[in-house]
Design a protein around this nucleic acid. Structure first.
Lengths: 184, 184
DNA sequence: ATACTATTTGAGTATGTACTCTAATTTGAG
DNA sequence: CTCAAATTAGAGTACATACTCAAATAGTAT
């Protein structure tokens, strides 16, 4: 992947993967459909990705990064920013959120690499929530902030989980309640 | 399934299914392994269950019911009872909890029947939490209790979700925090 | 005992999947 | 221009899976 053509194909595959997941779910997304959609043959796919799993993980990661309120991690995001980014991701990319949760759940049983990756991602997120919370409530101890951040992120995940079943469910409403609880 | 033999075989299959899930996860659980473990041939399996999915759903349901603090729904369970039952299920049947979440997540994309089933189960649970909360805090309005119960159950699910990835995660600790928040 | 139905047998089918491999073609650095 | 390396082509493989079916057997109500 050092030529322009390779990079373009890679992008096309990732976009197709994302679209397939959104349209057909994880079950409906196969190498075949991805390749057809991207106008690529399996040989090319496997020249650029090690496995289907890797492509899906990358596609989800790209989608999550796309709504990051502070992509450079400059420490400028507020708790509201973070929560809003979360809600936006869930609202706009519902099926990717679903897949993200599935990946997270499946990770516990799969390879240590994937498990570590998911855990690190989670911990990074909790840290950013904790930092933002401390900026808002400097009186809290580090430990208390960490605890609240962990509970808040888990609760948001739970709310997301429910939203994947009940699309009427108002994620924003409950997210605001949870935020009030965390800061109050 | 009107003879004793059929009922016994059914029980054996369900127990094998539960054990397989706990031991090998959902991926590792196949008709083949279930049948081998239960000492049954595929023909018998399909005489008693319509599909693999049905058997798994039933097995998970049985496991959840087994830790119910108020199986008769007499309305005698306290919020602590309900939370403790939840924690016990997650702690003792971690892999079934994982599968329960997977089913719930997948449900959003699958047949309306399954979706409805999962939703009804969730709503029933929220109702019991809400009722128990009202018994403890009769001063709350119905709506406020419902809201808090919904948030609490979702947060518990989120905590469970995280526990499926990080087995060191202290579910009880965060469950207690959440309970304090819900009642306080 | 009879007869009807539930249960079991167990080989077999149909299907779909992720992935591989070799050869041809294209790319772009020096 | 050249040539090694990157990319693409595309048929093909290996494999596992959920599920079926017709025939044999066992169970039980009468």
């Amino acid at each position: 992947m050092r030529y322009k053509a390779g990079l373009e194909t890679r992008d096309r595959i990732l976009e197709s993967t994302r679209a397939q997941i959104a349209e057909l779910g994880l079950e409906g997304t196969t190498i075949k459909t991805i390749c057809e959609d991207a106008g690529v043959l399996p040989g090319s796919f496997y020249n650029l990705f090690d496995s289907k799993e890797q492509a899906i993980l990358t596609a989800v990661r790209v989608a999550i990064d796309a709504v990051d309120p502070d992509p450079d991690h400059a420490g400028t995001d507020t708790l509201d920013d973070l929560i809003n980014a979360y809600i936006r991701f869930v609202d706009e990319q519902g099926d990717l959120a679903r897949v993200y949760i599935r990946i997270a759940v499946a990770a516990g049983r799969s390879s240590p690499e994937l498990k570590g990756r998911v855990l690190r991602h989670h911990e990074g997120r909790v840290k950013r929530f904790s930092d933002a919370l401390l900026r808002e409530r400097p009186d809290l101890s580090q430990e208390e902030a960490d605890n609240r951040a962990e509970a808040l992120v888990s609760a948001l995940n739970g709310v997301t989980l429910h939203r994947t079943i009940d699309t009427e469910f108002d994620v924003g409403h409950f997210a605001r309640i949870l935020k009030r609880v965390a800061t109050g």
